[in-house]
């Protein structure tokens, strides 16, 4: 199994939207490597002919009647928002400077 480098941890953190610090990169690089090595043994018994299980209860396409039901009101839905404006969630800018 490949060992995981500091650069790879930085890449994972970026993918996972975690602005980790330099100190954390050092800490996590070591720890993730140990964890991944300790779980890599799953490959030892996972033969090609074994079907994967994603879920203990094999359910597909659970349908319900398409009926109108009460839902959260606007005020309730916004009650936990970090910022709201005009009955909407207010978010930081979503486009780059050049856009």
């Amino acid at each position: 199994m490949p060992s995981i480098s500091r650069d790879e941890v930085a890449h994972l953190a970026k993918l996972a939207r975690l602005a980790v610090t330099e100190d954390e990169l050092d800490l996590f690089a070591g720890q993730l490597d140990v964890i991944l090595q300790s779980v890599a043994s799953v490959g030892d018994i996972a033969a090609a002919d074994i079907p994967p299980t994603s879920h203990a209860v094999p359910l597909t396409n659970v349908f319900r009647e398409d009926v109108v039901r009460p839902s959260l009101g606007q005020q309730q839905a916004l009650s936990g928002a970090p910022e709201a404006e005009d009955g909407r969630f207010r978010v930081p800018r979503i486009l780059g400077e050049e856009a």
Binding site: I4, K14, R17, A19, E24, F28, L36
Partner: peptide, 22 residues
Amino acid sequence: MSLTREAGFGPEVKRRIMIGTY
């Protein structure tokens, strides 16, 4: 988003998110 998740999650949660991402 990245700054919030960095400040809001503890080390074990960050480790598991990164292991899962990997």
